[in-house]
Design a protein around this nucleic acid. Sequence first.
DNA 1: CAACGTCAAGAGCGGTGCTCTCGTTTTTGT
DNA 2: ACAAAAACGAGAGCACCGCTCTTGACGTTG
Lengths: 248, 248
Amino acid sequence: MADRRTAGSIRARVRAEITEEIKAVARRHLAADGANLSLRAVARDMGMVSSAVYRYFASRDDLLTALIIDAYDAMGEATEKADAAVTDRDDLLGRWLAVAHAVRRWALAQPYEYALIYGSPVPGYAAPQDTVGPSARPVLVMGRILADACRHGLAEPDPLHAPPLPRALRAEVTAIADLVADGVTESVMARGLIAWTEIFGAVSFEVFGRLDKTIDEREAWFDHQARVMAALIGLTTERGRGGDKTQS
Amino acid sequence: MADRRTAGSIRARVRAEITEEIKAVARRHLAADGANLSLRAVARDMGMVSSAVYRYFASRDDLLTALIIDAYDAMGEATEKADAAVTDRDDLLGRWLAVAHAVRRWALAQPYEYALIYGSPVPGYAAPQDTVGPSARPVLVMGRILADACRHGLAEPDPLHAPPLPRALRAEVTAIADLVADGVTESVMARGLIAWTEIFGAVSFEVFGRLDKTIDEREAWFDHQARVMAALIGLTTERGRGGDKTQS
DNA sequence: CAACGTCAAGAGCGGTGCTCTCGTTTTTGT
DNA sequence: ACAAAAACGAGAGCACCGCTCTTGACGTTG
């Protein structure tokens, strides 16, 4: 049935365009009024009656899911482009900083879409399987940086001499490494995950207003955090010059 | 007028009781149905009509704010108790781990209240001034640990040799230290804030389901993260034995 | 050309936050 | 002690919400 709809018929084309327009209007509403997206308001904005929207999305949650998938893809693309834009592929610190700043910039540019995918999950909503693919894209970018760092012999040994992981945990971390950063030891993978967690904690703090009367120099503060996390992983330029060619 | 209401009259007493009961019922609804707290449903549960609730809370947002303040206070008390329960006050690693695990435990026990205070802020809601006091309690606990660590000469030098903070940022970080961790250098304060950010990032990841098909050994993983962050700060027992007396 | 599938529209259901009015009860000031 | 004032619960009502169902018009396809 989906095949029929995506066929080349005129009707299918119009349908795809309207579907896309609904999402665009919904995104506008999201950016304006915050969450609590109203399907009726979206329909009104399009000159439609609310029930007509249900021809395109079975429910409000379905529309939300579509927006979530788009948001994941947009952030994934932002991080991938940021990584690809670093010409010196051996400047792993530069790549890490570029990706981290790309995450932050994307989140600040569309805070409500960021909240949709990294904030508190909406009450009854359970992420369907369609979201797992796009949601993995940013972490795959980090995985590639980690793998390249390991290939170049950076990232070892652990600069903080952290205690070894418990047995069961080692297996799980290794499994993650096999998925997103092939050939990376569990020590590096664990530090990468910690750095990843800190980056998203920092972005969430800033986007959700927890820095409000506390830190004004937000970009500098985020840059510092990203650099400390890079040091935790052991990232540096190949020649150890300590890159400062981050775009900001 | 608030003075009148909190006077010893019978009416004031019953008013306080009903106010507290409304909050309790609302908390139950929050735990059951997740967010999207319905004032009408709460009123129904209490055998009241919805308009009667407005005698006690001017709006749904006001009720939310009361719940938020209570949640901040509850988490603050949990962290304070966890810190106080460590008898060896020089076991700074143990105190840090106790506080970190207390944050996580509290968040997992009441995930929707955690989402209320550390998740994406609700759309039109702006945190009133009443929330800043209670919201500072947990970070004050960390501040005391940081200050004690500095007094004992731990926490310096920076084990990762992070680059120095930019001028403007140094002033802001120092200002934070003056508020929550008197006598702490900006290097230590910065590392403390980074550790704090990572801890809350980790808790948010777990509470919001981002570890779902990834990591099952959650307590062990969190403990590892907390220990790595402790190492970043430079925390250890006074005698450098590296405490492993965390409660778990 | 006729049958089918798709579409927008409208009415309607039960739910929501919130306001207003109306008696009743309790507190307060004299 | 008694009247004025304040607080209270109940109910009706407004505008909005997500969602369902039906109806009539339209394009597509056999």
